[in-house]
């Protein structure tokens, strides 16, 4: 029996095998996405029945300065989070890729924040940031907050949220970079050493170029992820002071589940989804990631 002949004899499952998963995903994720679009053209208070009201929600959202302000804050968070986390995660990941014992021990501590839920992290940090009893009261005076009320000032609150998010997510991105840095062939470094390249030159000319796929991956996850930070801000600052940290998801949550303007909130939800998708497509296109596809396992 030849190999080619037997290939067709192995029993193959029918298309029905995928139906349960497809149905489940379709009903609880696919249909809701379509419904969000439908609801954005309706007026609905969460009870009763949604009633179509044409483009009302859209024109209200587009002319609402508060929404534009939230969009601006979301984008500021996105940029700040990327700027803070990427260099840190990159350096820590490359460092943690080394096999020395001290690096292994320290890395296992660095990864501890990964074990906590967003809620637990945000709550612990809110305690630390408490102007009266937290660490903020002790450290505040040294960094320009004599009363320790870091989260009470506009810039302080933004910085606090960025720091809490970095504390939570840098370990994850470090993990990505650590895995990738261990893939770099040692040969490259040996060759560079023979050429007398310094450690800094090795980093710029070997490590960084070799990590470019991971930089794209990590950046997409970070930038798109930053559009959906919700729990952290809800717990640490609840959008305040004033609306200094009122990002789009916060605005959507308030409109939907506090003011019960579901149609209006659906418009914001769609903007969020579109922004995230557009962002990942853009990065993938301009970084040439599509061409890198073929080098990946799976798919």
């Amino acid at each position: 029996m030849t190999a080619a002949g037997s290939a067709d004899r192995a029993a193959r499952p029918g298309a029905l095998w995928i139906v349960p998963a497809a149905l489940f995903f379709g009903v609880f994720a696919g249909v809701p996405l379509v419904l969000t679009a439908v609801l954005s053209f309706t007026s609905w208070n969460g009870l009763g029945t949604p009633a179509f009201n044409g483009l009302d929600n859209w024109s209200r959202v587009l002319s609402d300065d508060a929404v534009w302000e939230s969009l601006r804050i979301s984008l500021v968070f996105m940029v700040l989070c990327w700027l803070v986390q990427t260099p840190l995660a990159l350096l820590l990941g490359v460092w943690a890729a080394g096999r020395e014992l001290n690096r292994a021990v320290l890395s296992s501590i660095f990864f501890l924040p990964l074990l906590m839920s967003t809620a637990a992290i945000a709550i612990s940090w809110r305690v630390l940031l408490d102007p009266n009893f937290g660490l903020a009261a002790t450290i505040g005076p040294y960094i320009g907050f004599p009363d320790g009320n870091i989260v009470g000032s506009q810039h302080g609150a933004v910085a606090a949220v960025v720091i809490v998010i970095a504390w939570q997510f840098v370990p994850f991105h470090t993990l990505l970079y650590q895995g990738a840095a261990r893939q770099i062939p040692q040969m490259l470094y040996d060759a560079a050493l023979i050429d007398g390249a310094s450690r800094v030159r090795q980093f710029w000319h070997i490590t960084l170029p070799q990590l470019r796929h991971t930089i794209v991956t990590s950046s997409v996850l970070m930038l798109v992820g930053s559009l959906t930070y919700f729990e952290t801000i809800l717990i640490v600052t609840n959008g305040g002071p004033g609306s200094a940290t009122m990002v789009l998801p916060q605005r959507m949550y308030l409109s939907a589940f506090q003011s019960f303007q579901m149609g209006y909130a659906s418009v914001i939800a769609l903007v969020l989804a579109a922004l995230g998708t557009a962002l990942s497509l853009l990065i993938v296109r301009f970084s040439g990631f599509a061409k890198m596809r073929s080098t990946l396992e799976g798919i």
Binding site: A29, V31, L33, L39, G46, V224, T277
Partner: peptide, 17 residues
């Protein structure tokens, strides 16, 4: 494609359903 859908974008219809 579903990997890119943020849960927040669907939460209102999920609540409705």
């Amino acid at each position: 494609a579903g990997l890119a859908v943020p849960a927040q974008a669907t939460i209102i219809p999920v609540y409705l359903m």
